[in-house]
């Protein structure tokens, strides 16, 4: 996988743009195919590196510091309404989801 045989296709760009929720027109997709391939060419050198000596274990030298379970929210100096694009009765509003099975999260955001 990877290496010089990997080339980014137009479909790849469209797929990745969909994953990242970036709307791209056809021309932009075309130019990005070239840009990404030129960038990724330079990454091929990594496939030649001997990584046997590289530890993949997490660096646990500084373990996670934790806080006590005491309410102490970071205070907000402005109301949510001051920065939210759309709010009503304390809720953030978004366009109605085309599907809304209550527990189908992560699946319902798919293509409609």
């Amino acid at each position: 996988m990877g290496g010089s045989d990997v080339a980014v296709s137009e479909d790849d760009v469209r797929h990745v743009a969909a994953l990242a929720r970036l709307g791209l027109d056809g021309d932009r997709v075309q130019s990005l195919v070239g840009e990404l391939n030129r960038i990724l060419e330079h990454m091929d050198v990594l496939q030649q590196v001997d990584i046997r000596g590289a530890s993949l274990d997490p660096d646990a030298a500084h373990g996670l510091r934790m806080r006590e379970d005491v309410p102490n929210p970071i205070p907000l100096h402005r109301e949510r309404e001051a920065f939210a694009p759309a709010m009503r009765d304390g809720f953030f509003l978004v366009p109605r989801l085309a599907t809304h099975g209550t527990a189908a999260r992560g699946d319902d955001e798919g293509d409609e």
Binding site: A20, R21, L22, G23, L24, V94, P95, R96, L97, A98, E109, D111, E112
Partner: peptide
Amino acid sequence: DGLRGMYEATRS
């Protein structure tokens, strides 16, 4: 254009 459309238009 729905939620998906809002995401894509906003981010692009």
